[in-house]
Write a protein that binds this DNA or RNA. Structure first.
Lengths: 143, 143
DNA sequence: TTAAATTACTTGTCATACTAATTATATTTG
DNA sequence: CAAATATAATTAGTATGACAAGTAATTTAA
């Protein structure tokens, strides 16, 4: 493969990732979910894993700290998430979903799973395995 | 495959695409390239294809018009690109690289190809074909 | 041939991403 | 213990990305 090709693959990857996100975001908007795709990711991880600190959560969702701070700010304003002081470390917060946040996650979870499904039509189980293996290889190459 | 999995794959895709872009961007910065990854994409396409209008270029690089307008603004300020009035259509511009832009492309092209290569280590030709096929399938699913 | 629709581009707004710098607090170490 | 270092979170700055709305010019169609 020529070197030129590597840039083309990078472009293809970027383009596809953007399309997948955009597709989901449009559906979110059409159905008045009131949150973005990234806000959803944060809420879902919180629902599976409460009392995380912001940096732990950032690590989980692979976002950097400033980005996570802002998403948490927005979710706090929307009354889906709360920052509680950490009992032992005054630099840190423990994050929890509010009751409204819990309800939101419960209500949206199945809808979102079905939106996400669309991207993966016409692909079979072995495609998924291949795709995962390749994505993880790329990711590991750049650690 | 359970529905839950589809979200995981979407997440993996997003994460990997971001990592690839971030890796390239860091190298760009370390080597003082003076442009971003997306600005590079625009300049490269211009160098292969002059006299494009902004909307044609936007289509080529799969960005929307507002995004392209802003990238062209920045590249114009940096004196790498020029907007020329279209001879027949006063709504439109023809874009060209300035001499400085031409030089920049010539100088960076090989360096960038080699930066891009890193992501694709440990993958072989058939992986690339598979990967391309799957990405294009996903893209097409969401048209 | 002029009113309506379309096209090319721009502007504005909000959200995300990354970097660098800052503040407050904890931890380590000399 | 005090000083140096590290960590958690925030703030600020710049760029990209999506979307909506606006302007000017062109095309279409009544």
């Amino acid at each position: 493969m020529t070197q030129e090709q590597f840039s083309k693959y990078s472009f293809l990857l970027d383009r596809t990732a953007r399309r997948v996100k955009q597709y989901a975001q449009r559906k979110f908007k059409l159905s008045d979910f009131d949150i973005t795709v990234d806000q959803w990711l944060v809420m879902k991880n919180l629902s599976e894993n409460e009392l995380l600190s912001q940096s732990e959560l950032a690590t989980l969702v692979f976002k950097d700290q400033p980005t996570l701070t802002r998403i948490v700010d927005i979710l706090t304003k929307k009354n889906y998430v709360e920052r509680q002081p950490h009992p032992l470390d005054r630099r840190s917060f423990q994050l929890i979903l509010t009751p409204a946040g819990e309800e939101k996650v419960k209500a949206l979870k199945p809808k979102i799973a079905s939106i996400r499904e669309k991207a993966w039509e016409n692909l079979n189980e072995s495609d998924f395995q291949e795709f995962k293996r390749i994505l993880n290889t790329i990711y590991a190459n750049l650690e």
